[in-house]
Simulated scan of single mutants.
Amino acid sequence: MSTNTLEKLQARFDPKAAQGMHEIFQFHFSDADSYYLDIQDGKLDVQQGEHDDPSVSLSLSTDTLKGIMNGDINGMTAFMTGKLKATGNVMLATKLTTLFPSE
């Protein structure tokens, strides 16, 4: 995953939407290194690698993530068509567009 994509996510992060959240979003990219987002009560920390106890794990390509985050790809459609695989608290994945609203 390019640092540019990560920087865009960090810039779009909405701390108000993350108030009271204590969650780890693990991303396993088919075409890049793994990253996780550690969201703790309105604060975001992005780390490269694997978290040992993520709230939800998402497996996808970086293009699929970009598409979901910019609204070109419906997350549920990506899930149903196999472009996105999720394990753990799958409902958390639906909050990504709320946590990172598009410009």
Rank of each mutant, 00 (worst) to 15 (best):
K66P: 00
Y35R: 09
L60H: 10
T77P: 00
L58K: 00
K83E: 07
G49V: 13
I68C: 02
F29H: 13
V56L: 10
N74T: 03
Q48E: 08
V46K: 09
T64G: 02
Y35S: 07
Q48I: 06
N70W: 01
D38G: 06
K43W: 04
F27W: 13
H28Y: 06
G82Q: 13
N70P: 00
M76W: 06
Q48P: 04
S34D: 15
G42S: 06
H51T: 11
P54D: 12
G67N: 02
S55L: 11
L58Q: 03
M80C: 03
T77W: 04
S30F: 03
H28E: 12
D53T: 07
S34Y: 08
T81R: 02
S61A: 08
T62R: 07
V56A: 12
D41M: 03
D38A: 11
S30Q: 08
L37S: 02
G71Y: 04
E50V: 15
V56T: 11
A32C: 08
F79H: 08
F29D: 11
L84M: 13
I73L: 08
M76T: 09
P54N: 11
T62A: 10
D31V: 05
D45M: 05
G75A: 15
G49T: 14
Q47L: 14
K43C: 03
G67L: 05
D38M: 09
L58N: 05
D33R: 15
G71Q: 03
M76S: 05
E50D: 15
K66I: 09
D45L: 10
K66W: 00
H51Q: 13
M69C: 05
G75V: 13
Y36H: 15
D45N: 11
Q40Y: 01
L84K: 10
T77E: 08
M76P: 02
I39W: 04
M80S: 07
D45F: 05
I73W: 00
I39T: 01
G75M: 14
A32H: 12
D38K: 13
N74G: 02
L84P: 08
L84F: 10
Q40C: 00
A78T: 07
S59L: 07
G42A: 05
G82K: 14
K66L: 06
S61M: 09
M69A: 08
M80D: 00
D53L: 05
L58T: 01
L60T: 14
A32D: 13
Q47E: 14
T64K: 03
M76G: 03
D63T: 07
M80G: 00
G82D: 11
D41C: 02
I73V: 11
A32Q: 09
T77L: 11
T64C: 04
E50F: 14
K85P: 02
V46W: 08
S61P: 08
L37K: 04
L65P: 01
